[in-house]
C-alpha cells in the first residue's frame, strides 16, 4: 500500500516533470523574438507560408537547382535567385537571431552549413 502510493507520487512527478524543468531553467515565459531582416523587401512567399513550409521551399530550390539547373524562382512577391546563402541570408543576415533562434526553440538542426557558406558578415553578428 505504502509502496503503491510512493510509486503513484513518483509517476505524477514524472508527468509534471516538464513543468518543473522549465521553471528550473527559468524559461516558463520564453518566447523567442525573431529579428526581422534589416533590408527592405518581402520574403520569398508570404510569411505564414514561409513559417510553415520554408523547408519544403528550400528542398524544391535545391532539387530545381542541382537536378534541373533552374536558377530563378518566381513567386507572387517577385523573382528570386535560387541560393541558400545568397538569397535567404542576404536578407536574413541576422541568422543567429532569426533562423537559429527559432530552430533552437523547436529542436531543429538543419545540416546545411557544413557545406553551405555562412558569409562573414552574417557569422559575425
Amino acid at each position: 500500500m505504502i509502496k503503491i502510493l510512493i510509486s503513484l507520487i513518483l509517476f505524477l512527478m514524472v508527468v509534471f516533470l516538464p513543468v518543473g524543468y522549465n521553471v528550473y531553467t527559468g524559461k516558463t515565459a520564453y518566447i523567442p523574438v525573431l529579428q526581422p531582416p534589416e533590408q527592405r523587401g518581402e520574403c520569398v512567399e508570404n510569411v505564414m507560408f514561409m513559417r510553415k513550409k520554408h523547408s519544403l521551399l528550400l528542398e524544391k530550390w535545391r532539387d530545381a537547382y542541382v537536378r534541373d539547373g533552374i536558377k530563378r524562382y518566381v513567386s507572387i512577391n517577385g523573382i528570386y535567385k535560387i541560393s541558400l546563402t545568397g538569397t535567404c541570408l542576404e536578407c536574413h543576415s541576422n541568422k543567429t537571431q532569426f533562423c537559429d533562434r527559432c530552430h533552437d526553440y523547436l529542436g531543429v538542426k538543419p545540416r546545411c552549413w557544413s557545406c553551405h557558406n555562412i558569409p562573414e558578415k552574417v557569422a559575425k553578428k
Binding site: N22, K53, L106
Partner: peptide, 18 residues
C-alpha cells in the same frame, strides 16, 4: 503543416496557466 512556433507558445500558455 502546423506552425510549430505558435504551437509551442500555445502549449506554454496552457502549462503555465496563462
Amino acid at each position: 503543416r502546423a506552425d510549430l512556433y505558435s504551437v509551442k507558445v500555445f502549449l506554454y500558455g496552457l502549462i503555465y496557466l496563462n
